[in-house]
């Protein structure tokens, strides 16, 4: 339906009469435009999305490698490192995707340009999906960067590549939606950083990321089991290493279920304009 374009990005707001303006059940053009906006935003911050998480993950890895002390080079030590790699990849995926949606929405709100998308004939469905997809791309790309970095330091064969991509995408989608919700709920940057410091980062760190939960006290295990990020990471670990704490099918169901809940909540809040329409 679109004419071939010279530039991948047509000028914003350009009048293109060839485009069909009738809006059906799903406003495809609106969705595409918002998604394109998210992609451009991502492209401009490419260095921060790709390089910073990869460097940070390598630093964590080095700390663990040296921190092993006398265990370094032994089978037990190697097992700790092998366990760690999928966790570090997923840490980057989940935090980066939440950051992307949350900051994008809050920035629009604070700068006063949120009105442009509230006025346009796009519904909550299109907006939430466009943001979420932008967050998924950011998360998965940063995860890929960390994975490439891990190939240098600690190369591991990937047992189920497609499942790995699937779990990374599902985990990213879950956190992109969660990030979007915090963006909706926040009105200041302080609120946003509080959500990350006091909720997202602790919940991601204490999710069996660095150490197997089988070594934890039972009460603590129950707490971690209730953490959806644990399931995303555990499923991803199964996809990468071929073994995990629990059945990957169960992990996938839990993550997708939480995604559905968060989507419904985000779409509802966006459509009533909570904290967005005066």
């Amino acid at each position: 339906m679109t004419a071939p374009q010279q530039s991948p990005f047509p000028p914003a707001g350009a009048f293109r009469p060839e485009l069909d303006r009738r809006i059906g059940v799903f406003h495809r053009l609106g969705f595409q435009t918002l998604l394109q906006r998210e992609m451009r935003r991502l492209w401009r911050m490419a260095a921060m999305v790709v390089v910073a998480p990869a460097v940070m993950a390598m630093i964590y890895f080095a700390c663990f490698l040296f921190g092993l002390g006398p265990q370094r080079g032994t089978p037990e030590g190697d097992a700790v490192l092998t366990f760690l790699v999928p966790g570090l990849i997923m840490l980057s995926v989940v935090l980066r995707s939440a950051e992307n949606t949350g900051f994008s929405l809050l920035f629009a709100k604070i700068e006063g340009m949120l009105v442009d998308q509230l006025m346009a004939p796009v519904g909550a469905r299109e907006v939430v999906l466009a943001y979420a997809l932008g967050g998924v791309v950011a998360g998965v790309v940063s995860g890929l960067a960390v994975w490439l970095g891990s190939l240098v330091l600690w190369p591991l064969p990937v047992a189920h590549p497609l499942a790995a991509l699937g779990f990374a995408t599902a985990g990213a989608l879950m956190m992109a939606l969660a990030g979007l919700l915090t963006g909706i709920a926040s009105t200041k940057w302080d609120h946003m950083s509080a959500w990350f410091t006091f909720l997202f980062v602790p919940v991601s760190f204490l999710s069996g990321l660095f150490a197997p939960i089988s070594g934890m006290p039972p009460a603590w295990q129950a707490v971690v089991q209730a953490n959806p990020i644990f399931h995303a990471i555990d499923g991803f670990r199964w996809a990468m290493l071929g073994s995990s704490h629990q059945d990957p099918g169960r992990s996938a169901l839990i993550v997708l279920g939480v995604c559905a809940l968060l989507y419904a909540l985000a779409a509802r809040l966006y459509s009533i304009g909570w904290k967005m329409k005066a």
Binding site: L68, V80, D190, S193, P202, F210, M216
Partner: peptide, 25 residues
């Protein structure tokens, strides 16, 4: 004035690191 961000947040993050490294290593 913004002690939640400047004092409480770094303390929480540091304690988190402590917990994680203590658990793993």
């Amino acid at each position: 004035k913004v002690w939640v961000q400047t004092i409480a947040a770094p303390v929480v993050t540091t304690l988190l690191f402590y917990a994680v490294f203590a658990l793993a290593l």
